[in-house]
């Protein structure tokens, strides 16, 4: 249990809310922090059909089986991390999302051999969006971010400017609303690397014009 008034996001000291008040304008990249997401690490043998079915019944979608893919709905997102490892993410900033999610998983997996670990408090999420988002991330990461290679829903653990991160392409260009918003990446990074990574992203994105958005 975290007291709400003690709770600070990893980038709270940068005062991003104040900077995000302006209009995005024609900036090529729009960045924001998406803090306090509930994240739970799940280890489970995907061959355990009974447990996989129980999770599908509890969450309404099946865990992604293919490498580097995600699944989910508006309440919960599942990211593939390894052949027997997933992250389940509650995208909203509800203060007790992590514990509630872990509890839901433990209930669904009762009696099965699995590990459920809350990791959300150790991470924050930086949302990098806009028509030049792919170009910006490509500067610091060896993954292929071409629209044909990294499609909507793709996720991958890799490095960004030497920091270990988890990428999730929340929405690609095709989902963009009128106004050419471009792809929307969620970049999950360890709390202690968040300020470094934010500074790196702003610096690397200077040529595309970075807007801080709410």
């Amino acid at each position: 249990m975290v007291e709400a008034y003690l709770r600070q996001s990893a980038l709270a000291h940068l005062g991003l809310e104040g900077r995000g008040a302006g209009a995005r304008g024609a900036a090529g990249v729009a960045m924001s922090e998406r803090p306090h997401r509930g994240i739970v690490n799940l280890r489970l043998d995907p061959g355990n059909a009974e447990a996989m079915a129980a999770l599908k019944a509890a969450f309404g979608f099946a865990l992604p089986a293919a490498a580097n893919t995600s699944a989910g709905n508006t309440d919960t997102i599942a990211l593939w991390l390894g052949p027997d490892e997933w992250w389940l993410v509650v995208p909203g900033p509800e203060p007790e999302a992590g514990p509630a999610l872990a509890e839901k998983l433990r209930a669904a997996l009762s009696g099965h051999f699995a590990a459920v670990t809350e990791v959300g408090e150790s991470r924050t999420c930086i949302r990098v969006a806009g028509p030049r988002a792919r170009a910006l991330l490509q500067k610091g990461c060896p993954l292929d971010f071409h629209p044909r290679a990294f499609v909507a829903g793709a996720c991958a653990q890799s490095i960004l400017a030497k920091a270990a991160v988890t990428f999730h392409l929340f929405a690609d260009e095709s989902a963009a609303q009128a106004g050419a918003e471009g792809p929307v990446f969620d970049v999950y990074v360890a709390r202690s690397f968040a300020e470094y990574l934010w500074a790196w992203l702003e610096d690397a994105g200077a040529e595309y014009d970075v807007a801080v958005v709410a």
């Binding site: 490498a67 580097n68 390894g82 052949p83 060896p142 993954l143 991958a156 653990q157 890799s158 490095i159």
Partner: peptide, 11 residues
Amino acid sequence: PYCGPRSEEEF
């Protein structure tokens, strides 16, 4: 064998 081709930097 699990994630597909990746850069040596990640290993």
